[in-house]
């Protein structure tokens, strides 16, 4: 029984992580943080480097949650996340959302949408705190 968080090293990833940590602590369950990358760019901003990783560990420690952080290099980030969820028999999968324009949705496709449709466990979607407009 585990809480799985799809984490990216940005604002929405952080929102999802914090939410996931709270859920895990409330339920008294383990937390698995997945930070996957396709590894197709030399530099991937959403893939956590050493300093970001350290910061997250500190954050989780301060929240009092014991977590496992995985950083797989995979063909497809969405599938990798779903696979981890299956593997650890997740009770809930926490993901971060970002705002998308209609055109953006059409061209880019949506990771979140595929997760919502394909996940075999409940999905908790969190939005990053957006700066006031």
């Amino acid at each position: 029984m585990t809480v799985v968080v799809g984490w990216t090293a940005d604002a929405r990833g952080r929102a999802a992580l914090v939410q996931g940590a709270h859920v895990a602590r409330l339920r008294g369950q383990e937390l698995v943080v997945v930070n996957a990358t396709t590894g197709t760019a030399v530099v991937d901003d959403r893939f956590a480097g050493a300093s970001a990783l350290e910061e997250v560990r500190r954050l989780l420690a301060s929240l009092g949650v014991d977590a496992e952080v995985r950083q797989p290099v995979v063909r497809d980030v969405t599938e990798a996340l779903l696979e981890v969820a299956d593997e650890v028999r997740a009770t809930v999968l926490v993901i971060g959302l970002r705002h998308r324009s209609p055109v953006g949705k059409l061209i880019m496709g949506s990771t979140a949408q595929r997760i919502l449709l394909d996940a075999r466990c409940p999905v908790l979607a969190v939005k990053a705190e957006e700066p006031a407009r």
């Binding site: 995985r70 797989p72 593997e87």
Partner: peptide, 15 residues
């Protein structure tokens, strides 16, 4: 598709 291109590494092992 399975874990092609690298299976999950335990807790952020960088190798």
């Amino acid at each position: 598709m399975s874990t092609a291109g690298g299976a999950a590494t335990p807790s952020g092992v960088i190798a």
